[in-house]
């Protein structure tokens, strides 16, 4: 129990630090952190599938993209979601993500392993194709620029710092909600499915249903991320829903450490940081990112959240060696 308390305290401390420090940075940093936080919600939703259920989905950008497009289309065409009704847009985006996941899940959940990967990839690309080809609705290749700016409802979200706090609040709420989820009986059942699906069936779990529900929940939070992303960026293009977005999310989870939630957020921060600053510093930043991924997968299967564990193991072996050396010194 006290272990848990310490962990939670640590995360809360970091969140508070983030909320205090970031607004003091320059306005680009505020924007950058806002983006990383909004995207981290997508990465965490994927972690529910990858880290906790053992389902490597390559289609998570679909829910993200559909909600982002919906936000942009409703705002541009009907002015919906730009005032107090932003608070309707948020659940609407989540519902849309969940509904799409509910449909996709019917196809995807039957498959496992590589087949699951391929099906989710294909379904995700369907959404991309739709975004790209359905010109009259999505603006095709040009995408949609949100003309109305960000919502204003007492709070003026066009102010980047205010908007940062909003996204920060959503991020913290998502982290808390998903944390409760993964420690709930349902969350534990997902872990069981990840570890040994057959045993779960024999223990009386309707494994398909549990996976399906997890898939839908991940879709809902993907949708939330999409709504925030639309307002963060102010522009939605087919690039937003293309495969790379799904891959990015997947790599962030792996980089930070799958099955840790916080790891997904750290992965998001690092990827955004490297991308925006690395690309300014060195033209070969992509190789840096690539190398980071490869090294992580090779040497840190638990991701960055596994670093302290690794260090401890290393220290333990070092200690053993020194005691051995001492013992072998002739007295």
């Amino acid at each position: 129990m006290s272990k848990q308390t310490i962990k939670i305290a640590a995360v809360v401390l970091c969140l508070v630090a983030l909320a205090v420090i970031v607004p003091r940075g320059n306005s680009f940093v505020v924007l950058l952190v806002t983006r990383a936080l909004a995207f981290a919600i997508l990465a965490m939703s994927l972690d529910i599938l990858l880290g906790f259920t053992g389902l490597a989905s390559l289609g998570q950008a679909a829910y993200f993209g559909v909600a982002a497009y919906l936000t942009a289309i409703l705002a541009n065409r009907y002015g919906f979601g730009l005032h107090w009704d932003f608070w309707l847009m948020v659940p609407l985006g989540m519902l849309t993500g969940a509904a799409l996941a509910a449909i996709f899940g019917l196809f995807a959940i039957r498959a496992t392993g590589t087949y699951f990967l391929m099906i989710t990839l294909a379904l995700g690309q369907c959404v991309w194709g739709l975004a790209y080809r359905w010109n009259s609705m999505t603006g095709g290749d040009n995408g949609i620029t949100m003309k109305g700016g960000r919502p204003q409802f007492g709070l003026d979200l066009t102010n980047d710092v205010t908007f940062f706090y909003l996204v920060f609040a959503f991020f913290a709420a998502t982290l808390a909600a998903l944390y409760v989820l993964v420690r709930s009986p349902f969350g534990k059942s997902l872990l069981g499915i990840r570890e040994r699906e057959l045993r779960m069936k024999i223990l009386g779990y309707n494994v398909w249903l549990h996976k399906y529900v997890a898939f839908i929940i991940a879709g809902a939070f993907g949708g939330l991320s999409g709504v925030l992303w639309a307002h963060t960026n102010g522009i939605i293009t087919p690039e937003t829903v293309v495969l790379t977005t799904s891959v990015d999310a997947l790599l962030m989870v792996v980089l930070g450490g799958a099955g840790t939630l916080v790891g997904a957020a750290i992965g998001s921060a690092i990827v955004f940081g490297l991308r925006e600053f690395g690309s300014t510093l060195v033209p070969w930043w992509q190789y840096v990112l690539g190398a980071v991924y490869v090294l992580t997968i090779l040497y840190l299967p638990m991701g960055l959240m596994g670093v302290p564990e690794r260090l401890r193991q290393w220290r333990a072996t070092q200690k053993k060696r020194t005691t051995k050396n001492l013992a072998s010194v002739p007295s």
Partner: peptide, 10 residues
């Protein structure tokens, strides 16, 4: 209760 997702297992 295996479907409960808003309470800790503990």
């Amino acid at each position: 209760t295996k479907f409960v997702m808003w309470r800790f297992q503990s």
